[in-house]
């Protein structure tokens, strides 16, 4: 069973029909759109809470990248796992996280996913298979490979989907981890969310190859680059990579080219990119606008349907912020809790 329900059986379809419209039902695809709305509202709510002084610290917003998280995760099955990264709110939402607990974590409350100890960069939910975000660029990649190693050792059917950014592909951890995953044919998919910049440095100025997926040749594994703002293209490429991983053929690199509308983090003044560039991505290449248009084209939705989903997403986020505000803060006396595992004496 796919995370968003059964793949639709549509029989014969025209070859030019995008992948997701061939394989997923109207309800499943509207649920994907709903999750995109929730991600965007979540990020906007987080930004707004920060500006109003309700949240401290920093955060990395994924506005503009919603098609990557949702398109990739919709291809997974129930027991599959994900490894997220510092720009991970969208991954969590797409994977079905409870936005109340996510916001509570932002607010540093005990009802948060990490009981207020982790904040924006460390949301995880092991029970559901979300192995967590990570504050170290590339830090999660070897861990994801280890998770896949455990899956293979225990002869489970799971696949691990490992998100990382274009910045992380230049870390040594990436090379060491991908080499081992390829060497041992581990059930993992390396999903590069290429948003064009590692903080301020563009991919062209940081990577020796035009596409991050070109790195795949060096490990003898498949690598593909797709339009990361197109849900269907992302889902199609990831689906193929997931099947390959599940059937024991090993890992692949799927590069999804996208763009973050906001700065790297809250301190970013956007000196390294032009207003024209940012506006072009916002106005002409927004992944949500695009998916709405495609849904309409295929008769899967209308402005009224979309508006209803938007309203529902907004209400969900408003409720999550209220939940977070009203939750309890951790006790200062418990500051050293969770450093070690509590053991029965």
């Amino acid at each position: 069973m796919a995370r968003n329900g059964h793949a639709a059986d549509k029989g014969e379809v025209a070859a030019n029909v995008p992948f997701v419209f061939q394989h997923y039902s109207r309800d499943e695809l509207l649920d994907v759109l709903y999750k995109m709305y929730v991600i965007r509202r979540f990020e906007e709510g987080a930004e707004n809470s920060y500006m109003r002084g309700l949240i401290h610290g920093t955060m990395h917003l994924s506005i503009g990248q919603e098609a990557v998280a949702t398109g990739a995760i919709m291809t997974l099955q129930e027991n599959d796992q994900i490894m997220s990264n510092h720009r991970g709110h969208g991954h969590c939402v797409a994977f079905g996280a409870d936005v109340n607990r996510m916001f509570a974590e932002f607010f540093g409350k005990v009802t948060g996913y990490c009981k207020g100890r982790g904040g924006s960069m460390h949301i995880a939910d092991f029970k559901s298979g979300n192995l967590g975000a990570n504050g170290i660029v590339g830090g999660g990649i070897p861990i994801a490979v280890g998770a896949a190693f455990a899956v293979k050792s225990k002869k489970e059917e799971k696949v691990v989907l490992c998100f990382f950014g274009d910045g992380a592909n230049n870390e040594g951890a990436f090379h060491e981890a991908v080499n081992m995953a390829a060497l041992w044919k581990l059930p993992i998919v390396f999903l590069c969310e290429n948003n064009g910049y590692g903080l301020s440095v563009s991919v062209a100025r940081a990577s020796s190859v035009p596409n991050i997926s070109d790195r795949a040749k060096g490990y003898g594994i498949p690598g593909v680059t797709v339009d990361g703002n197109c849900v269907s293209d992302v889902a199609e490429a990831v689906s193929e990579a997931v099947e390959r991983a599940r059937s024991g053929e090993g890992p692949s690199i799927v590069e999804c080219k996208t763009y973050r509308h906001r700065g790297h983090s809250k301190s970013d003044r956007n000196r390294y990119r032009t207003k024209e560039e940012i506006d072009d991505w916002i106005k002409n290449r927004d992944p949500i606008d695009r998916f709405e248009m495609e849904l309409k084209q295929h008769g899967f939705g209308s402005d009224e349907v979309f508006e209803e989903l938007r309203q529902r997403a907004s209400a969900t986020i408003d409720g999550a912020i209220e939940f977070a505000k009203n939750s309890e803060s951790p006790s200062i006396a418990d500051v050293s809790q969770y450093v070690y595992t509590e053991q029965a004496q």
């Binding site: 948060g112 996913y113 990490c114 009981k115 207020g116 100890r117 982790g118 460390h122 995880a124 939910d125 092991f126 967590g132 809790q337 969770y338 450093v339 070690y340 595992t341 509590e342």
Partner: peptide
């Protein structure tokens, strides 16, 4: 373990 609030 600490960052994840005792989750793992």
């Amino acid at each position: 373990r600490f960052m994840l609030g005792g989750e793992v």
